[in-house]
Design a protein around this nucleic acid. Structure first.
Length: 314
DNA sequence: AAGACGCTCAACCGCTGGCCC
DNA sequence: AGGGCCAGCGGTTGAGCGTCT
């Protein structure tokens, strides 16, 4: 018998009477205590040594997705949603890769978010989640709207912080967290941003890229930037190397996203938006209420998107 | 009140690639 | 070189819960 724990292979699952299904509190405590003492790794032997009648796989999953102390619980934030949408547009279903850029979130959680929220909307629109139409809708409607909501929330919090030190501290912590996420992203990509925005730079980068026509021909003009193909480093460099205009203090007006001419310029897709459609009159979002991106899929937007998809399919 | 339905998410399954012997 | 084991990944399932009718 070698030191790699091959003793586990000598026992069938039946012989070990392995448990399946939901974990009990006792099992959780056993696993936590064992890892606290001995550390992670060698999951099959860990399961045996800890006296858990679980497969190593099951132990690993329970630990990584639930018991790990740095696992973040709670709703996916707007910033996280934006990041997920963006990263998924670049890497496709590479959940673990995407999860690397959302500290504390697991690949399982992101995958579930995608399947339950994003794919649901695609289904409602009767289109494939991987179709160009849906991806366009995501990038040109959903994501810009997320940016707007994030900025609105930041503005509201900043205003409140004038009178509340605690709120100020909290906001700073939030910003620092986002900065950390984004800096981590840049660091991993080996990209040096030329002129970092002052505020939430990840969000700001969206604003700047969409306000920079020159850039539209690179990162945004083609459906190639969606797809499931793995993005190259140069793709990302293009994405972040947006010439920073005079507006580097994150005060760009998100409403610009909704101007048809600009969007057509960006997409290079004539007819994507109906001529004369006043996007600014489409304000389905309630900035004061709710926190869910689901708000986007209200009657007006659904109608508009369905119309677009129908036209596109004809 | 209760059954149907839909949603969420923890957990499982099957596969793959890497490592070790 | 080839077999066996392991960790990790993406896809899928199903229990639990809330909402609707």
């Amino acid at each position: 018998m070698d030191e790699k724990g091959r003793t586990t292979s000598l026992l069938s699952e039946d012989e070990m009477e392995l448990r399946r299904g939901p974990w009990t509190v006792d099992e959780d405590l056993t696993l936590i205590n064992y890892i606290a003492t001995h550390g992670e790794g060698r999951w099959n032997t860990l399961a045996l040594s800890a006296g858990l009648k679980r497969t190593g796989k099951s132990c690993r999953l329970r630990w990584l997705n639930y018991l790990r102390p740095d696992v973040r619980r709670g709703n996916i934030t707007l910033e996280e949603q934006l990041l997920i949408l963006e990263l998924h547009s670049r890497w496709g279903n590479r959940w673990s890769k995407i999860a690397q850029y959302l500290p504390g979130r697991t690949d399982n959680e992101i995958k579930n978010y995608w399947r339950t929220r994003v794919q649901k909307h695609a289904k409602q629109l009767k289109c494939d989640v991987n179709s160009k139409q849906f991806k366009d809708a995501m990038r040109y409607l959903w994501m810009p709207r997320l940016v707007e909501r994030i900025q609105a929330a930041a503005t509201a919090t900043a205003t409140a912080s004038v009178t509340t030190n605690d709120a100020y501290t909290s906001e700073n912590n939030l910003k620092n967290n986002h900065m950390e996420v984004h800096n981590n992203l840049k660091e991993k990509m080996g990209f040096i941003e030329p002129s970092p925005p002052m505020n939430n730079d990840f969000v700001a980068s969206y604003v700047m890229q969409s306000h920079t026509p020159d850039n539209s021909s690179t990162a945004l003009s083609s459906s190639d930037s969606f797809g499931t193909q793995v993005s190259t480093k140069s793709d990302l460099t293009d994405y972040y190397s947006v010439p920073v205009s005079s507006n580097n203090n994150n005060t760009a007006t998100p409403a610009d996203y909704y101007q048809p001419s600009q969007i057509n310029c960006i997409t290079g897709t004539p007819g994507f938006f109906p001529p004369g459609l006043d996007f600014q009159s489409l304000d389905p979002w309630n900035l004061q209420n709710g926190d869910s991106s689901d708000n986007f899929w209200n009657v007006e937007n659904m109608f508009f998107l369905e119309q677009h998809l129908m036209n596109d399919n004809m």
